[in-house]
Design a protein around this nucleic acid. Structure first.
Lengths: 330, 330
DNA sequence: CACCTTTTGAAAGGTATTTTCAGGGTGGTG
DNA sequence: CACCACCCTGAAAATACCTTTCAAAAGGTG
């Protein structure tokens, strides 16, 4: 009954099983896979329009309902949809058949797929600033989106040659100092933690005075890294200047590659600042960008020193194993 | 997981809605609209990864099957999927439950949706692992991509209700302690820095002993936040347990929402672990996820306390102005 | 090696879907 | 205007599918 369209054309009678939906008593092997063949998911609205003429009134109501609100319909059972459209289950099933599906179950799956497709289409709509009265789900979405954008921007803008040079310097360094204040200091410590794990010698003093006294100790063969979004943080510029003047190789990770800290940096790695908003100022969003750069540095160094880095990494993980509670129940 | 929290302490009985996923027998009217609350469709692979450790072997087989071939699995009935994975229907249903769906029916719908989403052009994000001999530009691209994916996964999997509850707790806290070790400690410090800027009282002791002695001081009205990717770091569980037992409201930011630290947490915020690779183990990639959660918490709290937060924020920026070198040339 | 806990699948028990079937329209015809 | 043939429609029966229960098997632990 499903091929209403065909009317009664001379079926070419394909030898293969037409997979008749019903009337197939599972006589044969007990494992017979159903092998459903659902039509393409999209173009449902079009199909509804095309087939509407060949539908009865109540079927049209059902068809309109599913075409108009795929997502909502997908959430309903046959009974639910029948009620919503003021028809019966049988009619819903008949409509599904007309639309080309073996039954309502499959139509429902297709609807879910269609809804997802549509939703995916208008995903990039959330670019507005985070507002004070945004509900939390919106905040989460916007934040994730902003940070992702920030990552993409940073990756695109990162100067690979500078990165290469920076990695080379770090990989061969006798000793590494990382300067940063506030949030940038945390990024610096992240870098230090990583470098320590592959056997390098690194420090990230949080105290500006300590930073300067540390910097005095550096000389050629050592590396100093300064992290500051503004590029103008005196407490970070100072130690880098000292390191620079003592002959160390200096790197700057900053959002302001001109002037400021850049004048004392042998290699500058530029971070990109995402758009500001009142609740999330630029200084705060710079962290994501800085961390990406730091990760790139680390991976680069780890690659260069793979022979020693790999065993060092494993060793550090093993050392931590005992600090974890036993895999409790399960 | 929420019921693990209860323990047996004199809960102040917050009126929070647990939103129990299953176990809601449709008692009511015969027409009761199911009102299914299916989790976000995307991020399934991430969820599988996150929850895999808390699954049994056969469940893992099922989870892998659906994550590996959503489209194919969506075409199968419970029985079919059970056969394909060499398990039973019961196991399939159990797996669906673990993944957060009321039953297999809903998982199936979600799979269809996911498959459609993937097919809809959006690249399946099958970035190859970072290899030892990848050139730097490739490393940069892959890292950025992985972290972006991680952000998306986390955002999709984040439980808004839990987040809401966490924000409420933080916004009204008398005092806030944040526990974390290693990289997670840095995340904790990031949170603390932010909270301090809007006038809250927060600490993130790095020393486990200090953390415990801090925790002893907490009582009802205070909030303790634990950050640990594995959820099993003893040095982080201990202070949270102490805080919990002293009546503080406890939050956990972890990739393992079941067992471990979750048992002492009133609210659990789940981070998603990105795929591992030799050079970039899971523990390392968890940072991105954790930071997103921390940012969400912060923005949420800042919104709630806007009246006092806004001036506090401005004040803190102003205070730093003098620590910056004058906008040199230009 | 006995005991306990956890995991697992078979089968019973329910829902949801599909099919059947008869009542009720509708339009045509005498 | 009455009647008939046809098809639309929904109620209810039949079936397929999903969920729950329960006892056996597997895996630890003392």
């Amino acid at each position: 009954m499903k091929e209403t369209a065909g009317g009664d054309r001379p079926v070419p009678a394909p030898a293969d099983a037409p997979t008749a939906p019903a009337a197939t008593p599972p006589v044969a092997p007990p494992v017979a896979p159903p092998a459903r063949s659902a039509p393409a998911p999209g173009a449902l609205a079009a199909k509804v329009r095309t087939l509407a003429p060949s539908m009865t009134r109540s079927m049209q109501r059902v068809a309109e309902a599913v075409a108009g609100d795929p997502a909502g319909s997908a959430a309903l059972t046959v009974t639910g949809l029948a009620e919503r459209t003021g028809t019966s289950e049988a009619t819903v099933v008949r409509t599904a058949r007309i639309l080309g599906y073996p039954g309502y179950r499959d139509l429902r799956l297709a609807l879910a797929a269609l809804a997802a497709e549509q939703a995916a289409g208008r995903a990039p709509a959330v670019t507005a600033d985070i507002a004070v009265d945004d509900p939390l789900p919106a905040v989460v979405a916007k934040l994730a989106q902003e940070e992702a954008q920030c990552l993409a921007d940073t990756a695109a803008a990162l100067d690979t040659a500078q990165l290469e040079a920076a990695v080379t310097a770090l990989a061969g360094a006798r000793r590494i100092d990382v300067y940063g204040i506030g949030a940038s200091n945390l990024v610096g410590q992240d870098l230090v933690q990583k470098l320590l794990r592959i056997g390098l010698i690194a420090h990230a003093p949080a105290d500006p005075h300590l930073a300067v006294t540390n910097a005095v100790q550096l000389r050629a063969g050592d590396v100093a890294v300064a992290i500051t979004h503004s590029g103008r943080t005196t407490d970070v510029i100072e130690p880098l200047r000292v390191a620079f003047e003592h002959g160390a190789t200096t790197l700057a990770i900053t959002g302001r590659p001109e002037g400021g800290i850049a004048q004392y940096a042998d290699h500058v790695l530029t971070t990109s600042s995402a758009r500001e908003s009142e609740l999330r100022p630029a200084a705060m969003s710079s962290r994501t960008s800085q961390l990406l750069v730091v990760d790139c540095l680390f991976i680069g160094v780890a690659q260069r020193t793979y022979e020693s880095a790999a065993p060092a990494l494993s060793a550090s993980y093993e050392a931590l194993a005992h600090r974890h509670a036993p895999r409790s129940p399960r």
